[in-house]
Structure formats: C-alpha cells, structure tokens
Design a protein around this nucleic acid. Structure first.
Lengths: 136, 136
DNA sequence: GTTCCTGCAAAAGCTTTGCAGAAGA
DNA sequence: TCTTCTGCAAAGCTTTTGCAGGAAC
C-alpha cells in the first residue's frame, strides 16, 4: 500500500504534475480506501484533517489523476461518479440491494469483440449488477 | 423493427403495464432510433409531434421500461443516462472525440470472472472508450 | 515574477418529487 | 368509482465555472 503510493508519486513527478499537499492527500486516500469512494466520501473524510479543503479541489484533483491514467472513474449507474486506483484487469459488481461495489478479476483482453476492427481502444470496463451474497 | 415493437407491446401487456399513448410512443421511438438517445433527445424529437408531452413523462416511462427489463440504461461517463432497447449480448464503445456510441457484439457469458461465486448476476455491461475510425 | 493551484460562491445540468387534473379500467 | 398516469413547477444533487487570493518554482 505504502509502496503503491510511492510509485504513484513517482509517476506524477514523471508527468510533471505538481504534487500539492491536497493532491497527495487525495491520492493517498485512494490507495488506502479501495472502496470506490464518491467525491463526497473523499471530501468528507479528508475534510476532518484538512479543514480548509474544498470540494472543488477534490474534483480538480480527481480530474487530473484520471487524465494522468492513475485513477479510474466508475459510472455504474447512480448519478455520482466513483473513483478507484487504476490497477490491473478487473471488473465491478454493484449490489442492487446494499449498493456496495465489489471488484472481481477478469481477463478483459481475452474478450472477443466483433466490429471494432479499426477502433483505438483506450479503456475497457466491465460492470455487473445483481445481488451480493451478503444480501441474499 | 415493426415486429420488434409489436413483441415489446405484447411483453408489456403480459406484465400488466398500462400501454398509454406516451409510453407506446417512447417505446416505438427506441425501436426506431437505435442511437442510444438521451432523455433530452427522446423528448425533443417526440415533442415535435406530441406538443403536450412532458419530460417528466419521458423519465417516468423510461424507468418503467427499464424495470420491466425491456430497455437498458447506459451510463458510460457523461452525466446523462442513455437508453437502448435491451437486445442480445453486446457492448458499447464510446468515442472520446466525437462522443458517438457504437454497439459491438461480444460474448459476455464467456467472460471468466473470478470471485463472484455466490453473487446473483442480473445484468452484465461492457463499456469501452477510445477513438473511432471516423475520428482517427 | 510567472505560472499553476486552491477554494468560495454561483451557475449549470440532469433527475426526482409533489401535486392537481386527466385518462384509463 | 377507483386507480394509475400525465405534466407543470419546484426542489435536489452532482458537477462545472469564474475569479480572487495564495502557493510553488
């Protein structure tokens, strides 16, 4: 976890993205809270220790991190975006009952997809819906 | 296309969902416009011929149709939901440049997904992002 | 000294809710 | 008649924008 955070910091330096206190805090938060938090969750938690933090900055930071490819935005219905450290191939499952989002491993590259011959694919997302074991 | 619409009508009758004029128009629109329209697009187009139609009714109707499983809601980023007649296995590709959404065929059932053993999967979605041939 | 970042407030945009009247069964 | 649906207006939410002050280099 710690190592991951350091790796991501290096990645930001490489891309010449300013490592402001706020940005580092958001990035650190995402490495430590792999629960696909919403902007509001990130803001509320970080606001506890950084009382001057604004939601705008959280939005700005997340946009920068997503553009840099370090963070992935998840839009699995609901009208709020969730955020996730961008790691290896995995899909997301959302429980219709409790709203939790679960990660699961899947090999997206192996997925056959007819009709995208001349398309440049930058990102692949798999979203499932249903009921989780806890709620059944 | 015509046949599809009739099938969907029968499906609604079966589920005892009232076939109001507005609902039939929205459903017909979706069978004839397979371009993943937004609520606003559906409303604007249908409003031409039904000047009394309200956007609220479009929202209501789409919710009913999604709950009935006849229509699928697509949340591929952007903060507006798109709608699609729910047909066989296919994924969606969104071009980052022009914003168009393309369908492509894919066999979702064949996708291996570790870690969902006791999960009840109701719906599977695959979303890709990138650049389409037209924009390259 | 310049450039970029932060954060407040306001605005924008999509979606939902409340409710009265209309339509359907 | 009783239930359900429609549509207007208002409210609710998330997200974006404008801008002045501050931080970083």
């Amino acid at each position: 976890m710690k190592a991951l955070f350091e790796d991501l910091k290096k990645e930001l330096k490489l891309r010449k993205i300013q490592l402001s206190h706020q940005r580092l805090k958001v990035l650190e938060y995402l490495t430590q809270n792999r629960s696909h938090p919403t902007v509001d969750q990130i803001f509320t938690d970080l606001h506890q220790e950084m009382s001057t933090l604004s939601k705008t900055t959280v939005y700005n930071t997340l946009r920068v991190l997503v553009e840099a490819g370090l963070v992935r935005a998840i839009n699995i219905e609901d009208h709020e975006t969730r955020y996730d450290i961008n790691v290896e191939n995995h899909g997301h499952f959302k429980c219709e009952s409790c709203g939790r989002i679960y990660d699961f491993h899947t090999d997206l590259d192996a997925l056959a997809c007819d009709g995208l011959n001349n398309f440049l694919i930058k990102d692949r997302n798999v979203y499932f819906n249903g009921i989780c074991p806890r709620c059944r």
